[in-house]
Design a protein around this nucleic acid. Structure first.
Lengths: 180, 180
DNA sequence: TACGTCATGTAAGTCGTTACATGATTGG
DNA sequence: CCAATCATGTAACGACTTACATGACGTA
């Protein structure tokens, strides 16, 4: 799913600025299955506007930059809802962390331990964050989707805690840089 | 992690052709956290060879095209193992399926049911596939990584089975195309 | 003083996908 | 007979990232 459709979909749930779309997609309730950068969002919004699928109003504020608040148009809504009937593209998951763990035998035990500690901390953050978002969100579809994310993160977390000893023991005992 | 490093890493575990790297990354034991296309792999191998990080021998076979079997060089191995000390980039997960489920209220109940049936079938395939790969693989690092993938897929599967009724009930009752 | 937040946007460049081109063999 | 598998590669295109430019305010 491209950034264009993503923007349209988010605007379908309510008006937003480019900045808010970025925050929603990388920190908010979509952040566990989507990500987009400013450099992708702003041009996408410009194009959607040119195509008549969204409109915007400017909100002047003192002390802060002017906001462009985008709204989806009727044509945009139609376009978006039609697109939902298409089979979803398969999920994409890329993990350099797993790639690294696969190479545990080439890493120092201490380094593996550090990477796993970081990862566990990161997953705990994510889980906690999803819990918070879920509490402050009464949209049913989002609830379902947050639950799905939580289930996956929690499973990863449990697996890491239960199996870290196994992968840590695969590493090299210390950095033998002096020797060779 | 770019395709270049991916190829180097796979070659670090043993010689392979471009075709085999593709298969490993999209069907084999790396397929749940990595993917690469031919159009990315072949140029990457050419460049790695130019840079002296890999070498290749040609294997002529009758009835089948000639294979170029690549091997990692000492320089390549050093380069790769050094790169492992860097902090791994954060995981990336993109799911159009979850995006779709978030929009359940705009979909027909029947369509949601179909999408979920497909997804469950797909996840069951993946789980079974990982089980098979795990049995035929005695590399410890890979075992750990396969287990991680399995845990995540299984969690997603269980969640879907337990909560599908909730999201299905959010959908529209039938396709009201005649009305409007 | 320097960084983080709010806010928009551009431009260059990287990276990777998709489609094409080629062609023999095997299996349903 | 058609599709899939094996096998390599190119070229065009698209998508996205990164870095930059601008600027005021708040806070540690």
């Amino acid at each position: 799913m491209n950034i264009r459709t993503l923007c349209l979909g988010i605007l379908n749930f309510g008006d937003a600025t480019g900045y808010e779309i970025k925050k929603l997609s990388s920190e908010g309730r979509f952040s566990h299955f989507i990500d987009a950068s400013f450099g992708a969002i702003y041009p996408a919004l410009t194009r959607l506007h040119e195509d008549g699928l969204i409109s915007f109003r400017e909100e002047f504020q003192d002390g802060k930059p002017t906001r462009k608040v985008y709204s989806i148009s009727e044509a945009g809504r139609r376009d978006f809802i039609d697109s939902l009937d298409d089979e979803p593209a398969p999920d994409k998951f890329k993990s350099q962390f797993l790639f690294l763990m696969m190479c545990a035998e080439y890493l120092d035990k201490s380094l593996i331990r550090k990477f796993i500690d970081d990862r566990i901390a990161h997953l705990e953050d994510k889980c906690q964050h999803l819990d918070e978002v879920r509490e402050h969100c009464d949209h049913d579809g989002s609830q379902f989707v947050i639950g799905y994310g939580k289930a996956m993160f929690q499973a990863a977390l449990d697996y890491l805690k239960d199996n870290r000893a196994f992968v840590e023991q695969l590493g090299k005992d210390r950095n033998l840089e002096a020797a060779e």
